[in-house]
Amino acid sequence: MINLMHLLGLEKGGWGAALLLASSVTLALSVLGFLLGAVFGAAAAAGRLSSRGVPAWLAHVYGTVFRGVPDLLTIYLLYYGGSIALTQIGKFLGAAGFVGLPTFATGVLAIGVISGAYQGEVYRGAYQAVDRGQSDACKALGLSRSQSLRLVIVPQLMRHALPGLGNVWQLVLKDSALISVIGLVELMRQAQIGAGSTREPFIFYVAAAALYFVIAAVTASVFRYGEARAWRGMVHA
């Protein structure tokens, strides 16, 4: 017990501060990746709902590819593919050696691309769940397309989307652990470092699991609160 308190303590020689810092990296990575995924997802949903063939086809391909390809492979492709491109640009400009992409930025991009494929389906289904009469009412009031979306459609769409987005968030939080493979020191990587340095893998991985659970529980409560607020005063099935 004393050894456990020493290993995970915040005082000098303990790993508690490092694990908490790594947890903040995990949270920042997940939040930024989720928000970027919302942008990709909104574009994908718009494409899937479009009556034009090319945008609909591109959105379909994007969703199919990144929901079907293993997430780890997507991370490798983005990191090494981007690094190769940067290296070639560097050589063209006279630089020598390998130029790697920033690991945090790559992680945000990878999570954004992956989660966007799932968020796109959530937004598409939520849009289709909004009563078609709402669009007719907007036309009757003389609202423009952008005004209809901003003032009427999107607020109602988000009511239906929040439960699905909560599930995508949990996926994002778990995917953040995969970013450790490209060298980012987030919670999973920090647990691996601690386990290797102290030869106490069970303690560090249990501590990491507990921290992931705390982050997941707190953020899930935020989504539940948002869902309750969105449906306040409304009757829904």
Rank of each mutant, 00 (worst) to 15 (best):
A28R: 10
L29D: 01
L29S: 04
S30E: 04
S30G: 05
S30L: 05
S30P: 02
L32F: 04
G33W: 01
F34I: 10
F34K: 06
L35W: 11
L36E: 05
G37S: 07
A38L: 14
V39N: 13
F40M: 05
G41W: 07
A42Q: 00
A42K: 01
A46P: 03
A46K: 09
G47H: 04
G47I: 05
R48G: 01
R48M: 01
R48L: 04
L49I: 02
S50H: 06
R52S: 03
V54A: 00
V54T: 00
P55N: 02
P55W: 06
A56R: 15
A56G: 03
L58M: 14
L58Q: 12
A59G: 00
Y62A: 01
Y62P: 01
G63N: 02
T64P: 11
F66L: 00
V69E: 04
V69A: 06
D71Y: 12
L73M: 12
Y76P: 15
Y80E: 13
Y80N: 14
G81V: 07
G82N: 03
G82R: 03
S83F: 09
S83K: 09
S83Q: 08
S83L: 09
L86E: 02
L86T: 02
L86S: 04
T87G: 08
I89R: 15
G90L: 13
K91T: 13
K91D: 14
F92L: 12
F92A: 13
L93W: 12
L93Q: 14
A96E: 08
A96H: 05
G97Y: 04
G97L: 07
F98S: 09
F98K: 11
G100A: 13
G100V: 08
L101V: 08
L101F: 10
P102H: 05
T103I: 08
T103K: 13
F104G: 05
F104Q: 10
F104K: 11
